[in-house]
C-alpha cells in the first residue's frame, strides 16, 4: 500500500498524435460504413420506385472538430 502516484500530465497535450490518428481512422471507417449502408438503402428506395432521398453520401471527414476534445 505505497502512496499512489500523483503525477499528472505536465506540459503535454491532452491527447497524443497517435491517439488522434487512431480516432481519425475510426471516424473514416465509420463514415465509410455509413456511406455504404446509405447507398444500399438508397438502392432499395430506387428499386421500390420511392421518392429519392435528399441526403448525399458524405465525404469522409478528414479531421475531428477539435483535437483536444
Amino acid at each position: 500500500m505505497a502512496p499512489h502516484d500523483l503525477r499528472r500530465a505536465y506540459k503535454r497535450p491532452a491527447i497524443s498524435d497517435q491517439q488522434r490518428r487512431r480516432e481519425l481512422a475510426l471516424q473514416r471507417q465509420e463514415q465509410a460504413r455509413r456511406d455504404v449502408q446509405l447507398q444500399a438503402r438508397r438502392l432499395a428506395s430506387t428499386l421500390l420506385s420511392l421518392p429519392p432521398e435528399h441526403e448525399q453520401p458524405s465525404e469522409p471527414e478528414p479531421e475531428p472538430e477539435s483535437a483536444s476534445e
Binding site: R22, A25, L26, Q29, A32, R33, V36
Partner: peptide
C-alpha cells in the same frame, strides 16, 4: 488489444 482493434477496423476497410 490496440493492435487487434486497429486490425478489426482494417478488415472492415478491406471488405469495403
Amino acid at each position: 488489444y490496440q493492435v487487434c482493434a486497429i486490425t478489426v477496423g482494417v478488415v472492415g476497410d478491406v471488405c469495403r
